[in-house]
Design a protein around this nucleic acid. Structure first.
Lengths: 240, 240
DNA sequence: ATGAAAAAGTCGTCTAGACAAGTTTTGTGC
DNA sequence: GCACAAAACTTGTCTAGACGACTTTTTCAT
């Protein structure tokens, strides 16, 4: 039963067991060391470490050794708070935001439909990077109906929460639509996330309405690196 | 901008574009052919095809060429029907079940807690394989409180739906807890699913209560091959 | 025609070696 | 001690070739 498992998987499974209770950030043996320890070729040892990277158990970076990964629980469900900032805080980490760009732009058709605006309407496009404890963990595009939030540029600042800023305008934001799906990073998203390859990311779509005006305020798509988050969907007490 | 992308990724991205609208089951060039076409080594062409397999765009099997994959939408959310059979039907495919084993067994502690049974209680453990249009797509373990459903063995048959059978006993099953999470297949799960390696699977946990008795009937954990399903979580009109 | 055996095609895995590019460590001059 | 350059280490990618195992096709005897 051991013989029919490829060597690189045996090595990977062994390492996985070894680091199961290791602290995040602990260094693993280098490819060369691992190859010597197990008496295999470097490419075989390398395949084992790549397997652990695919399982999100280790983080790899060129020139550095593999490190034991840290993963946050990202909980989604009926009680999910509409704000990403809030979700990360609940998971016990510190969220930060950085604006990449903010300006008027012509929205694509699916955004126009969702936000119920005309064919040649212009909307604010806010592109941001999302950090967890200082590490780049995701990015997002927000399409904003700017006539409800004139002068957003000043009030939002660089790292401000969009939902808190809406509250400053006297708006009561409510999340009216949520969608979560795993997709593979496009070349553009991979570049923004500064990752190589085309890794899996959690794509979150959320629409926020103004309770008072009874109309949509914004539509945000976020892409979160799935090596940072373990996504759990949970409901309890569903009555049907 | 093209030069700094590794060749295997260029080939993979090109192929992904080519097969984007291809019919499921269409054959791709073999590793050797692809290597000759693109003037690269077989290992490089192979890396490209492996990349597409990781993205669930193609299905690979030893001895056969890579085939364009078919993927179903598996929708979860507040309106998710409690029955897997029903979920697959809604996605436009035919679900089948096959019993691997059914018998009394001592449940682990987390099951005892969830089902609120004593420390030395015995429960029925039902292990099943789940097929979609005849292809093995998942497996499941169900822990059943058998005093509510005496003689389940006969009434369930081989491919019967658990929820429909409960209805036969005059029970009104309601889903009281749902949890979905991506995990990597353990060696045991990989064997049951007849897949090589340790692929990602969607792990679904569901608890069913009897509306009349106001107590749990069963607890099911399913593991679904994620190359079969694209999981989408969606809510609309969340009022909060 | 049919069925079994042989051949060809194909994928899975492993070893071997090379070079590029990134990071860490070491050494040197000041 | 400090800054900077060089060396050592480490990972990313690619080529080359081999063998085993599985699948499909062809061949051949009946």
């Amino acid at each position: 039963m051991r013989a029919d498992t490829p060597i690189y998987l045996q090595v990977a499974d062994d390492l996985a067991r070894d680091i199961a209770h290791a602290e995040a950030g602990t260094a693993l043996p280098s490819e060369t060391e691992l190859a010597r320890e197990r008496g295999v070729h470097r490419q075989t040892a390398r395949a084992a470490l790549e397997e652990l990277e695919r399982r999100y158990l280790v983080r790899r970076e060129q020139g550095r050794r593999s490190l034991v990964a840290r993963r946050l629980d990202y909980r989604i469900g009926p009680d999910t708070p509409p704000s990403w900032t809030e979700t990360i805080r609940r998971a016990g980490a510190t969220p930060t935001l950085r604006t990449e760009s903010l300006g008027p732009r012509k929205p694509p058709s699916w955004v126009r439909e969702r936000l119920a605006v005309g064919n040649d309407a212009m909307l604010l496009l806010l592109k941001r990077l999302r950090y967890v404890d200082g590490e780049l963990a995701g990015c997002s595009d927000s399409w904003i109906v700017d006539e409800l939030v004139r002068g957003l540029h000043q009030r939002l600042g660089d790292g401000g929460s969009l939902h808190l800023t809406f509250a400053n305008y006297g708006l009561t934001p409510v999340r009216s639509w949520t969608r979560a799906e795993f997709v593979f990073a496009t070349p553009g998203i991979a570049r923004r996330l500064a990752v190589s390859g085309r890794p899996m990311v959690l794509q979150l779509n959320g629409q926020t309405d103004s309770a008072r005006h009874r109309r949509p305020i914004e539509l945000t798509t976020s892409w979160l690196r799935s090596d940072f988050f373990r996504v759990i969907y949970e409901t309890t007490g569903d009555e049907r």
